[in-house]
Design a protein around this nucleic acid. Structure first.
Length: 279
DNA sequence: AACACATAGCGTCAGGGCGG
DNA sequence: CCGCCCTGACGCTATGTGTT
């Protein structure tokens, strides 16, 4: 699909359903939370009505239709769409019909390929009970958030390269195993092997070489593997955290825009009302 | 240029959560 | 219960920026 979905015009940052906001909107105590998602649509350049503009209130008649009642529309220029109805489909008629399928989760957000981007509570593979429990007790991991952002593809790609990286780092790894301080050992060399086995040579204080017993070697290898994995995990975690923060910032911007639009609308309606009143 | 400070990124550890 | 994963916290290093 050619259409792009953006938040606040930031390319690639499909909308975010902030899990925190889910919690916030459930302040009344009701565990079932429906979060309104806001997206900005940028349609392909060949479409004159390239940008969608209008604030569509939940449960009001609008150009956004549910799947059961699809209605092709010409989208006016603009930017903010509220999508609250499950199974919603956005249609544009510009030459070829373009359809953006929105997943049925209440807080779904569009993404470029029509994949959805929803918050933690919407994962398919989780029971409602568990979702509820997680929502109450635990902030979703950045991995989950990333997946929900529709970045699964990216994540998978990264996993691919990551696997490669892992392979490389494991096979070409040169590290210094940790040796108990009182062991009297000094590491001389550790050469990684493609098979994952490291050949470790030690020297005692007289400079004599020998390979220590399999237990120490095994412990050392396990530790190095753990450190390596944790290193990668930390890197990944930071990356996701950054992405998450970026998405939150985008969302703030979108909400600010929406707020501004609503204020303007209110203002003009007030003026209209006063005008009619005086007549 | 030298220095101080701020910021970003990294590696490691610790601890909690989760699946098997 | 154990092993693994995720992530906050901490310390370290590199880089950028403003000041002297």
């Amino acid at each position: 699909m050619d259409g792009m979905v953006e938040e606040n015009g930031t390319s690639g940052a499909a909308g975010v359903a902030d899990p925190l906001s889910s919690a916030g909107s459930s302040a009344g105590g009701a565990p079932h939370v429906v979060v309104t998602s806001i997206v900005q649509l940028t349609l392909p350049t060949q479409a004159p009505s390239a940008q969608v503009q209008s604030v569509i209130q939940p449960n009001q008649q609008s150009v956004i239709q549910t799947a059961s009642n699809i209605q092709p529309v010409q989208l006016p220029k603009g930017n903010v769409i509220l999508v609250t109805k499950p199974s919603s489909v956005i249609h544009t008629t510009q030459g070829t019909l373009q359809t953006l399928q929105i997943k049925p989760e209440p807080n779904t957000i569009l993404s470029a390929q029509g994949q959805s981007c929803s918050d933690d509570s919407c994962s398919d593979d989780e029971s409602p009970k568990r979702k509820y429990r997680e929502m109450l007790t635990r902030r979703p991991s950045y991995r989950k958030i990333l997946n929900d952002l529709g970045g699964a593809e990216i994540a998978e790609n990264r996993m691919g390269t990551k696997g490669l990286e892992n392979e490389v780092s494991l096979s070409s790894l040169s590290f210094a195993p940790v040796i108990p301080a009182d062991s009297g050992l000094h590491t001389l060399a550790v050469s990684g092997t493609a098979g994952g086995g490291a050949i470790v040579q030690y020297a005692n204080q007289d400079g004599q070489f020998y390979v220590p017993g399999p237990i120490l070697e095994d412990q050392t290898r396990k530790r190095e593997l753990r450190l390596l994995k944790n290193r990668e995990a930390a890197r990944e975690c930071r990356r996701k955290k950054k992405e998450y923060i970026k998405c939150l910032e985008n969302r703030v911007a979108v909400l600010e825009n929406q707020n501004k639009a609503l204020i303007d609308e209110l203002k003009s309606l007030k003026e209209l009302y006063c005008q009619q009143k005086t007549e």
